[in-house]
Computed example of a mutant assay.
Amino acid sequence: MAGTQSRNGWMIWLTFLIGLLLSVVPFPHVEILRPLFLALPLAYWALELPDKVGMVTAWCLGLAADVLYGTLLGHNALVLTLITFLILTLQQRLRMFPMWQQSLVILVIFGLAQLIQLWLSALTGNRQSLAVLLPALVSALLWPWVSFGLRGLRRRYKIN
Rank of each mutant, 00 (worst) to 15 (best):
T71L: 04
T71Q: 13
L82Y: 05
M99A: 10
Y69Q: 12
A77H: 12
F97G: 00
Q92V: 06
L82F: 10
G74P: 10
G74R: 06
M96R: 12
Q92G: 00
P98N: 10
G70F: 00
I83W: 03
P98D: 03
G74W: 01
T71N: 13
G70M: 06
G70R: 05
L78W: 03
L80V: 04
F97C: 07
I83A: 02
R95S: 11
L68R: 08
T84P: 03
F97P: 03
T89M: 12
N76S: 14
L73Q: 10
T84Q: 02
L73P: 04
L68M: 12
T81V: 12
G70N: 05
R95G: 08
I83T: 09
H75T: 15
M96K: 13
L80G: 03
R93A: 04
H75D: 15
P98W: 00
I83L: 08
L94C: 07
I83M: 09
M96P: 00
F97W: 11
Q92L: 04
M99C: 11
W100R: 14
T71V: 12
L68A: 00
P98L: 03
L90C: 15
I87A: 07
T71A: 09
L72S: 13
R95T: 14
L78F: 13
L88S: 06
R93G: 04
M99D: 08
L88G: 09
G74C: 11
Q92P: 03
L78D: 00
W100I: 14
P98I: 01
R93Y: 04
T84V: 13
Y69P: 11
W100K: 14
H75R: 15
Q92W: 02
L72R: 14
V79D: 05
Q101L: 15
T89H: 15
L78Y: 01
W100S: 10
T89S: 10
R93F: 07
V79W: 08
T81L: 07
L78G: 08
L82E: 00
N76L: 11
T89E: 14
P98V: 06
T89Y: 14
A77V: 01
L82T: 04
L86P: 08
P98A: 01
I83V: 15
T81C: 08
L68H: 06
L72N: 13
T84R: 02
M96V: 02
L94G: 02
T71Y: 02
V79R: 02
A77T: 01
M99Q: 10
L88R: 15
I87Y: 01
L86Y: 07
M99K: 13
Q91L: 00
T89P: 01
L73W: 04
L78K: 00
T81H: 03
L68E: 06
L88W: 04
G70P: 10
N76A: 13
L68F: 10
L90D: 11
L82I: 09
N76P: 10
Q92R: 10
H75P: 13
L90M: 15
L86N: 04
M99G: 07
W100A: 10
L73F: 14
T81M: 08
T81K: 05
I87S: 01
L68T: 09
L88P: 07
P98Y: 03
Y69L: 15
A77M: 09
G74M: 09
L90H: 11
L72I: 14
G74Q: 05
L73M: 12
M99R: 09
